[in-house]
């Protein structure tokens, strides 16, 4: 290769990287704005901020309304996470290595709620729950979020089970273990990482979801995004930036925890 071609290749490489990082920065910029403005002084959201203070963080932790929204979000997130993980893992397990009609029909049906607009699901569930007199707000939102999170768990587990060595299951049954014991003793220990990651993803999805939670909220129970929206309607204070920072932080921590779990699995396999 000639010198000219080589320098040309290098220039293209630099241009590509620069373009890539620029795009990345543009996408990430709003998050930075949110993060920075959460530390600002003064009553109104401005960017760039005037001065630094932790006053909005203090206000957040002093607010009974916000803390109760955090509690509601966590309760609903954990509930939706547990329920969708159980349903998604079992559903995926059911269609493994099967060529029955159910195994062909189930995946698209499970996917369906993810393709419907949340407005439609939210409204439909609101009417439905009212009609049947099922008015526990926690459970209502948990069911709504489970509808959304189950397909995600299902498809994560599909790829996890695709890498599972099914001879192990056969060996377990062959050695006298009933299917439930095979699942507990043989399958689960080998897909634990995938199950935990599914649960984390489901929790984050529930935590972020706004539209269905909006429809199904009640006077006493509302999630953090819903409260953020209502308080935004009255005034645009930096408090919303604080809340958003927390939501972003939880998501990032979730991803990091999953990555750490994966790495530990990976490490454990090599030790």
């Amino acid at each position: 290769m000639s010198e000219v071609e080589l320098s040309r290749e290098r220039a293209e490489d630099v241009l590509f990287r620069a373009g890539y990082w620029l795009l990345f920065a543009l996408i990430m910029l709003p998050i930075v704005v949110v993060f920075v403005t959460s530390f600002q002084r003064g009553q109104y959201l401005t960017f760039p901020p005037h001065g630094f203070s932790l006053q909005w963080y203090r206000q957040f932790f002093a607010s009974a309304e916000w803390l109760s929204a955090v509690r509601d979000s966590v309760v609903i997130g954990v509930g939706a996470s547990v329920l969708s993980t159980v349903l998604g893992v079992m559903g995926s397990l059911a269609v493994q290595r099967s060529d029955s009609t159910l195994a062909r029909v189930l995946p698209p049906i499970i996917l369906l709620p993810l393709l419907l607009p949340p407005v439609v699901i939210g409204l439909t569930l609101l009417i439905y729950f009212n009609r049947i007199g099922f008015t526990n707000t926690y459970l209502n939102i948990i069911v709504a979020h489970t509808l959304w999170a189950t397909p995600l768990v299902f498809f994560v587990m599909q790829s996890v089970f695709a890498r599972f060595d099914w001879d192990l299951r056969d060996a377990g049954m062959d050695l006298g273990a009933r299917p439930s014991r095979v699942f507990y003793h043989v399958v689960l220990p080998n897909v634990r990482g995938g199950v935990l990651i599914s649960a984390v993803v489901a929790f984050i999805v529930s935590l972020q979801e706004f539209i269905m939670a909006m429809f199904l909220k009640s006077y006493g129970v509302q999630t953090v995004p819903v409260l953020a929206w209502t308080s935004l309607q009255s005034s645009l204070t930096p408090l919303v930036s604080v809340v958003s920072t927390f939501l972003v932080a939880v998501s990032i921590i979730g991803v990091l925890v999953s990555a750490a779990l994966m790495n530990m699995e990976w490490l454990a396999e090599r030790l």
Partner: peptide, 13 residues
């Protein structure tokens, strides 16, 4: 009956 598999299928972990 008990089978010895081609892949041996020993339980990891």
């Amino acid at each position: 009956t008990s089978m010895v598999f081609q892949s041996w299928a020993l339980f990891p972990r």
